[in-house]
Design a protein around this nucleic acid. Structure first.
Lengths: 222, 222
DNA sequence: CCAAAAGTGTTCGTACTACACCCATGC
DNA sequence: GCATGGGTGTAGTACGAACACTTTTGG
């Protein structure tokens, strides 16, 4: 079956930058390409938009197919459309990004991806297509948003310590923060509360565990 | 001549929201459609992306063809891709927005546009496709950017008074500003300087005229 | 001389910054 | 008992918000 048009049409894909923080470092999920072009190279999860699905639905589908991730909040990042960014044909990529807690990530390879793996943002391999630019754009956007919003909470699991949260902010923004000032700030927002439980992780005082009071409020990104 | 693909491809357009301030009110440029669908309706300037041009080049070309505008700074806004937003076929629209001084706007109708006209943002007619959403998105983005950046200067002609500039900010943000605080703020940035000339426009004290010191610095939008 | 917009400083409150020590635990 | 990260308060500064009167012109 073929599809014919009176004028040339580009192909449209979505590509998704998924951030998480593991081992106190910012990571991005990459998929090893199972097909040409760039077979064997690492690339962002993503794929072609189907005629009956919206752009965001496409991104969500790809995310589930290639990385087993569901129910994530996606934000549109930028649309990349330089004429020769794909050697096959003209491909326009609508990119999205998201943040996720590092736990509960069932990584699986999908149809056109033979492997999925987390990479530290500072140790990325060479990427297929212009995906390096996409990651760079996402990193810049993330960093800017973290400075004046509470999206950092989206990185967190159900329960977390303030030190973990601070590490996430430090990693995403790329600079160190003052512990007391950080705690004052995040607590003053009344978005998180103590669970009453403690978390012991070594030869030192255990940390209080916190939870997000209203998960829906975290999505408010101005 | 026809073009055939193995999988269905969407069409891709760019649509541009051009803001200006005239008569102390925020305006948007609209084009009266000369062809179906929505023949006779008002719509944003824009059109189909050609295979050999980048998205931004496409937006610039359409802007010149349909509105006679050249050398404008465009910022990508959002990509709209709901499946049925165009009755003809699946069309994905990459939208851009820009600001321009109200002077020197040679408005001309292009190939698929029979008329171009400025409309006050609060008095827009019904728009073709989902262009109302695009305008709304652009307005929200503009308003947010105006709060913490100096893009407002892009609305200004060569020489302008501080009152005019303040009006622009008030229109875009949608609220009144304190005259003394506004002046302190804008002057402290060292982006504008007095021309030495004065501008008389009625039975009152004439205003000092200002100019932008370095036009390239105005494009810095974080 | 009157109407109308231009121009000009100070005070207050708040939010961010810098900074150092004690606490609870595991080994 | 010591090493390790967890937890806490205060003082100084800088920035934004509120606020009213004088100046210059045209008619």
């Amino acid at each position: 079956m073929t599809y014919t048009y009176e004028y040339p049409h580009p192909a449209v894909t979505t590509d998704i930058v998924i951030f998480t923080v593991r081992d106190a470092k910012l990571h991005v999920l990459l998929i090893k390409r199972g097909m040409d072009p760039f077979k064997g190279s690492w690339a962002l999860p993503g794929g072609f938009v189907r005629m009956e699905e919206s752009l965001e639905d496409c991104a969500k589908r790809e995310l589930e197919e290639e990385a087993g991730l569901k129910d994530v909040y996606l934000e549109q990042l930028y649309t990349f459309g330089t004429p020769n960014r794909d050697p096959r044909e003209r491909v326009i990529s609508v990119s999205y990004y998201t943040l996720t807690p590092s736990e509960n990530l069932e990584l699986k390879a999908g149809t056109d991806a033979s492997e999925a793996q987390w990479f530290a943002i500072d140790e990325l391999p060479a990427l297929a297509f212009d995906h390096s630019s996409i990651v760079e754009t996402a990193r810049a956007r993330l960093s800017a948003k973290m400075e004046y919003s509470t999206i950092g909470l989206q990185f967190m699991p159900e329960e977390f310590t303030l030190s973990q949260l601070q590490t996430v902010y430090e990693q995403a923004i790329g600079k160190e923060l003052d512990k007391r000032n950080f705690r004052k700030w995040i607590l003053s927002l009344n978005l998180i509360e103590e669970t009453g439980k403690k978390f012991s992780r070594g030869a030192h005082r255990p940390a209080m565990l916190f939870r997000i009071i209203d998960p829906s409020s975290v999505k408010i990104i101005r």
